[in-house]
Amino acid sequence: MAHATLTRTTEASGPEPARRSRGRRHRGEDLTKLLFVLPAVLAMVALFGYPVVKNLLMSLQDYGLRTFFTGDAPWVGLRNYTTVVTDNLFSQAMVNTALFTVGSIAFQFVIGLGLALFFHRRFPLGGVLRSLLLLPWLLPLIVSSATWRSILEQDSGILNRTLTGIGVIDDPVPWLNSPSVALIAVIGVNIWIGIPFNVTLLYSGLAEIPAELYEAGQLDGATGWRAFWYITWPNLRAVASVLLMLGVVYTIKVLDIILGLTGGGPANATQTLATQSYERSFIDFKFGEGAALSNILIAISFVFAIFYLRSTRRAVDE
């Protein structure tokens, strides 16, 4: 039976064997493609899928100290979410997170752009200075925050000593000791840390802009400020949007700098969603609530990621 079918097909059509062998080759090709994708899929599932799913599940469970020993974590529905959202500190942490993110990114970007434009003009030692500028980025965050903590110390910190010494202020500023100043100080340190990243990306963006554009612009009278507005800025837009998007995602989750500088204090003045999530998980050992907060954080980042993806897609379409 099988034999008959086989012969008939071979007899029946001439191009058939060719097509079949091509099909087999096709299948082999598919398999190869698949094998190439497989490691990436595995890595994604293990390194991204598992933690995200686990975190989602955890936020719906009463996941505490006991869970680690007994393994049971009762399902509690959305109770963790309502607990964290109705907490007294939640609204303050939200506002602080927003101020921290917007404040950090705005200044990092503007200062970074200024420095990038400055270094774009070639001058002696420009390269050396530009690489020195990377230093804050290279330091471990825990080192920078410890150093800044001593710089910002109210009584003997070098900043207050200098400022009082040159007569800018009469009384030492309570940088990290006053609830009304601490957030500003923490944002300031984060700006300092973020500038190198902004300078580096914006500088390479500037280097990409062809010099001919400026030459042509010069003929039409576009120099100085007008050259920046009509030539530099439009050409830098793509880099800038990537930078701002990454900035939001990186800044919104900043934890180590705040922990190192103030630990969320004084009197919770520098608590953000990230520090609250850390505190609930690793100090209170209420991992379910910590997971709920970090999921809220992920959701906010996700909104920005979507904005970013949509804007880049539009750019490709154009």
Partner: peptide
């Protein structure tokens, strides 16, 4: 079509083994 099915099978196999 085939590739999709295989991917699905592989994906579920991986998840299963992870679990």
């Amino acid at each position: 079509m085939i590739s999709k099915r295989i991917t699905a099978a592989l994906a579920s196999a991986t998840t299963l083994s992870l679990v």
